[in-house]
Design a protein around this nucleic acid. Sequence first.
DNA 1: GCCGTTTTCGGCCCGACTGTTTTCAGTCG
Length: 575
Amino acid sequence: MANPSNGVIADALDELGDLYELDGAVIHRVLAYRNAAKVVRDAPTSVAALALEGRVTELAGIGATLEEKIRALIETGEIPAAVRLRERFPPGLLAITALPGLGPKRARRLFDELAIDSPQALREAAQAHRLRTLRGFGAKFEESVLAALDAGAAERASHRVVLDRALAVGDALCEALASLDPSARVVLAGSARRRAESVKDLDIVLDNPALLDQLAGLELIESASRTSESAARARTHNGMLVELRAVEPERFGNLLQHLTGSAAHNAALRERAVRAGLHISEYGLLDDATGASTFCSQEAELYELLGLPYIEPELRENRGELEAALAGTLPALVALGDIRGDLHCHTTASDGRASIEEMARAARERGYEYLAITDHSATHGFGDDVSPEQLLRAIELVRAAEQQVGGIRLLAGSEVNILPDGSLDYDDELLAQLDWVIASVHTSFGLDAAAMTERVITAARHPHVDALGHLSGRLIERREPYAIDTDAVFAACAQAGTLIEINASPDRRDLSEVHARAAAAAGVAIVINSDAHSPGGFDVLRYGVWTARRAWLRAADVANTLPWPELEAKLKRSR
DNA sequence: GCCGTTTTCGGCCCGACTGTTTTCAGTCG
């Protein structure tokens, strides 16, 4: 049997944590499982492989006990403790804990004392007013439970919004608020500020509480209410929830840091601070020695007080950034302005909406030095295919467009399909005439991991393939990645000198941040590409740069921060 | 269950809110 992926192992540890919590384990034991699940999910290489080498305890938060459980999962497909606990606690009980206000402790009491083991049983008990017979439960609880069940809270998985949709609303809202008081500071915090792949809600920090009363008058807002002297909650017309907090200017940095998170980063930061006799909260930095609190108008001041350099929001995921900050080894992250060219875009020759010239002018206006035209290849289908004859003609058209547009180097390229057997759909003689070839999987997503890995590695080793496109095939919040051994692909690419793309489309961001970090660590050069299908499509490049930053990449890790001649010299075709 | 420039055992981040209680446990972010 193939090794379980990091995601599968992480899910198993999360489930076991939930089961232990229902079982009444001390909370720190439960948290140890949740922490381990996160560590595994974020791990850049195969945790199963690490466990089989006996090295899994090298991961912070995984000790002998968790090692044993992970090994059992790899070797038998099950963790014995989970099997045992699943028999005691029915799945419906876990579904109940998804209801607001119902955690493991209270759910367990309902199960023990009223034999409630499903949302349906809970509904019947609430309707019959049996819940209020329990000490600590009352009429209001029965009401809120029924309301939550009617709203479908038990069935509905938490709905997350992909970052581009979230920023469209969040940035516009901040702009609208700032326009009401141009002297105010209004900053979008939370996972949107950390540029995560998707967000649950929006958090906004501002330094003028009067603005909270003007929310309801904004065009974007459907409804708004004040939740306290310094806070408000709102819902936008497209259904996003927004939490707003106002704070005095001298404490703006404290609150912004708190609300930017992540929860794991903040928890780790506070734990370190406690050892130095300091207590961090959204209200200030309390020093045990003096009993006095210090306020920070800027986030950087807070990190400085903790003896740390400023940590970029994209790094705040507790993936080693605190250790690196202490050691002075935080990377200088790649920035949008470092990117000199885009190596993946489409024109009307395939499924794009603009001509070569229009795309070239748009790229030149963005300040790019070069642009690769990479329309889909011969087997693409949907009427978007480019026949070998058309591709030969396209090379001439690209050369002519370069002359006509001027001021930008145009590369004649192709986004070539990787067929199920790993072969490409143009012959080598034709591929050899191109300046740049990117190879992607667009069909047969259902292959098993071994076949898919073999397929992609075959393409990566092809002498005319410069880079792999959107490696996992995922669509964020919509389509799971297909099964593939990414570690094996990275090793093959590093060995063959094949680059791998971070496709910047906000729905893809593929490589993911975890995979991009692993690829770079394996010695693979990364390119960040827009996959633009129109001139406006170049705008999405920032999402790719954010993924690269969340992957700890520096400009030196990203090949298209180089001028084209230097990049070209590094390609295997130049060897 | 993990972990250690106070510790190999005894700790393990911070605060608000809620409903139910007369002082707080559980839940949430």
